[in-house]
Design a protein around this nucleic acid. Sequence first.
RNA 1: UACCCGAUGGUGUAAUUGGCAACACAUCUGGUUUUGGUCCAGACAUUCCAGGUUCAAGUCCUGGUCGGGUAGCCA
Length: 572
Amino acid sequence: MTDTQETPSDFIRDIVREDFASGRLQADQEQGQTLVTRFPPEPNGYLHIGHAKAICLNFGLVQEFGGRCHLRFDDTNPSKEEQEYADAIMNDVRWLGFDWGEHLYHASDYFEQLYLWGEHLIESGDAYIDEQTYEVMRSQRGSLTEPGTDSPHRDRPREESLDLFRRMRAGDFPDGAMVLRARIDMSSPNLNLRDPVLYRIQHKDHPRTGSAWCIYPMYDFAHGQSDAIEGISHSLCTLEFENHRPLYDWFLEKLPVPAKPRQIEFSRLNLSYTITSKRKLASLLEHGVVDGWDDPRMPTIAGMRRRGVTPQSIRTLCKTVGITKTEGIVDHALFDAIQREELNESAHRRMAVLRPLKVVVENWPEGKVEMVEAQNHPGRPELGTREVPFSGELWIEQDDFRVEAPRKYFRLKPGQEVRFRYGYYLTCTGYETNEAGEVTLVRCTYDPESRGGNTADERRVKGTIHWVDAQSSVPAEVRLYDHLFQQPDPSAGDDLMAAVNPNSLETVTAQLEPALAEEAVPGAVAVQFERNGYFCPDTTSSAGAAIFNRIVALRDSWAKFEKNMAGGATSA
RNA sequence: UACCCGAUGGUGUAAUUGGCAACACAUCUGGUUUUGGUCCAGACAUUCCAGGUUCAAGUCCUGGUCGGGUAGCCA
């Protein structure tokens, strides 16, 4: 995978550079430690835009500096994890453009070693079996401001702990009967060091190890040691693990591990109008706000892929927001801008009318159909042209006609002449309405001398609108997406559902130019519907039943102008 | 009222490690344009506060303020 611009440096890249300079890292594995990173998801849910940041960091680093990046599933809790998630995660990472080669690992690969290290800690007096209840242990933990108190089993003989630990493994005890705890310091100001639990009993089959185990290691006891086993040099994680680092280092010091990885924390990616909490995302499904994990409005990788977002756009976003330790919220408009920039360059132009209004050309020769030539990309002539039918009955956007138009409205209105892009100049001569007063039809005359969209006299026509020929156009379902939430920070309030945008999806029956019908198949590249936005066929679309998703709308300075006018009028 | 972390425009980052506060997005102005798109030009900051060191401080020192994280047998 190659991206056009170089990734700017950041504090982690600075550290890596320093490590090469100091000799801690060697470019050649034969001579010592190379750069080794890892992306360590728990297979208990779908990947989202926040994960993309970690993926780009870990895989991007080794692309730039050499080395390797492992994909490691942190599968230490069988009651939450499933193979289905692991498969989806691998698919998403690949789609994002990254490759772990042969370096696919699982924390469960190390269960035996981890268990042995558990015994090791017992033997060295650094761990013990505690058979108190969960509630008692919690009450002994103290609080944020008060120290905890020692467990009565804290000084139990090593042989006794060892025996109990072995019997735990053998399945002699029910869930929750006892745990293995590190013996550190119950009065530590860092709560993670107050004799944390290392192993718990769970009589539950594991997706990979089956029924081999009924005790499973906790994250803290598994993660750092897994890093060490794999020879990870830099273990990059998000800020909430900062307080875990002393524990991470404690295990590496107490245990005969083969390497000493270094944990470095960076801030999560937060996008405005978006959430990335697995629990909250799941609640959207439960409440029926979205159809599934791959609903195109979801910030999941699967959702964005279905929406038509490109992996390149996601990578560019991650590159642009950078890596720091400051927590903030990235303006979603930045992501929109990044997508438009990429799509503007690549997407072929097509004409599609989203909210059709019929136009009849009164002086058009009866039954005549003309083919006019349209460019596929005005900025890139090398992308060629196509033929589009034009006749006396056309569709235009409802919004491109006004009976009473505001100042500076350049589109169709009674008496006004506008350019039908690549077609002819049309002048509005009248219109029809229904009982409700809605315009149902617009009457125009055309200038036969204006074929292609200009005239010999070079008279100025300010407005240009898109259109499709009514006889040959193809109806299609088009899904117009907006933010899932109406507040920039949906998590700010206490009621997530109250923040949901009721208009996050608008479905319209559009009319497409004929060429789009064949392009309406899943997997097709994004196209620009001129003056509307960038669109991509949905996974359920077919040539016979076209369904398009709007990836991102075009910038619309006229809509903004009108909105400001309205806002200014009320506030003035 | 414990420990850890953070603080630079509206937003996200940068600043050769003590030397003219830069880039992108957003917003606003104007120009070009057969997409009200693209493109082009311009505008927009007392670097959280108060002291101190220095010819020189976003950067170093002291003290504060504000924000976030942490009390799972989750990761």
